[in-house]
Amino acid sequence: MQPRPSAVRLLVPGNIRHNSGGNVYNAALARGLSQLGVRVDVEPVEGTWPVGNTEERRRLAGLLVRGTGNGDAVTIVDGLIASGAPDALEAAVEGGQRPWILLHMPLIDHPELEIRALRAAAGVICTSGSAAADITRRHGAARVHVALPGTEKAEPAVGSNPPHLLSVAALLPNKDQMLLLGALAQVQDLPWTAALVGSDEADPDYAREVRGALGEYGLEGRVRLAGELRGSALEEQWHAADLSLLVSRVEAFGMAVTESLAHGVPVVVRSGTGAVEALNLGAVDLAAQEGGGSRLPGAAVVLDTDPAPLAAVLRGWLSGPELQAQWRQAALAGRDRLPGWDATARQVLEIIGGPAPGPGHSSERRADGQ
């Protein structure tokens, strides 16, 4: 085991400015490490990541070769930057530096770049078991570790009448809000309201498509496009929620799922994605009860392009008070099973160095002085 580092240099993508799961994880990890007494330097790296252009990769190589200037410090690079720029990591190794990769999601479109980057790194810290399993299956990668996202403590939601449905995700094709709206259009005969909370600037063309679908389905009075919300405005939405949905086509983990469970709000996710792993963190163990097994605080639904299966699940939940109560009870019971961000920071520190100490002074700072 390597000596515990006194400092961590965290390189994060400068081109992802919306409230993504990766950005939330990176910021929370920096705070958590800082509270353990480790100095954290957060350096946003501008570029058209992943992959970037030749000049952006050359600049990244320079940053990595320069290192931290501190003998026992460790550099961690967000996988969105590192996975598509193996030449920069290889240059760092030649220069005597070997950074770690913090992998939020595998780089499916460029496996030939990803495998080189993973091999050049000191090791890979995956933010979900599904991501770790994927890169191990595809690349046979060694030195792969997992540090699951934590959650912030939250007050249980009180819900609404009629039920309020919530989807927290940037308006992006992968998040598949179009499928969600198609499903909601099929249950308009039942009472409910809904809000889509997430940036409409990450993909303006898709956001326009979503707005157009609201009009096409006649959902303008039922579904609110709230944009990206933070702080108390986001908490108000969680406070009013009865059910949340994350139906992404691809999801390494889905931090919106654990955020929902932290508020005691059950979740519907797409089967076959990493969001199922997040949902299972809140599963209630029924092994000691008749029948055994576990009870999910929501459901994982097999979905393709047809919204009908999702609509059927929503109809069953909206018209079934017993199912609503069961999912709600499971979500409330699962709140205490969720790890905190302190656990995430300790896990990362143990991966890159020695055992984590007790909480200490805060020492986080950004490279830009903020």
Rank of each mutant, 00 (worst) to 15 (best):
T344Y: 07
H263G: 04
Q324D: 06
G293N: 04
E216H: 15
G353K: 02
S319I: 10
G215M: 05
M105E: 14
L246M: 13
D189R: 14
A283H: 13
A275N: 03
G79A: 00
E152A: 03
L281Y: 07
A131F: 10
M105G: 04
L243G: 08
G22V: 02
P173F: 00
G215L: 06
I125R: 06
L296K: 10
G198L: 06
E201H: 14
A330R: 13
A300N: 09
A132T: 06
A142Q: 12
L225H: 06
H139F: 06
L181K: 08
N280K: 14
P307N: 00
A170W: 09
A367P: 08
A120P: 11
G67R: 05
R59S: 12
G21A: 02
I81M: 01
A356R: 09
E236L: 11
G71L: 08
S128A: 05
T273C: 01
H361T: 15
D87C: 03
C126M: 02
L349V: 11
I135W: 10
P266Y: 07
V268A: 01
L33M: 09
R58F: 15
R270H: 09
A27Q: 15
H139K: 01
D368V: 04
A213E: 14
G353M: 04
D242L: 00
G62I: 11
P3C: 04
L166C: 01
V302S: 08
A252W: 14
E235A: 15
L102V: 05
H139E: 02
E112T: 12
P111N: 13
W317Y: 08
D368L: 04
R365S: 05
A27V: 12
N174A: 02
M255G: 02
D109W: 15
L286W: 15
P99L: 03
V276M: 04
V247P: 07
V146R: 03
G198F: 11
E43M: 11
L286T: 14
G254F: 06
V168H: 12
L338N: 03
I101N: 05
L318S: 03
G62L: 08
G274I: 01
D342S: 14
E90W: 08
T305L: 07
G159S: 02
V348F: 10
A132P: 06
A299Q: 12
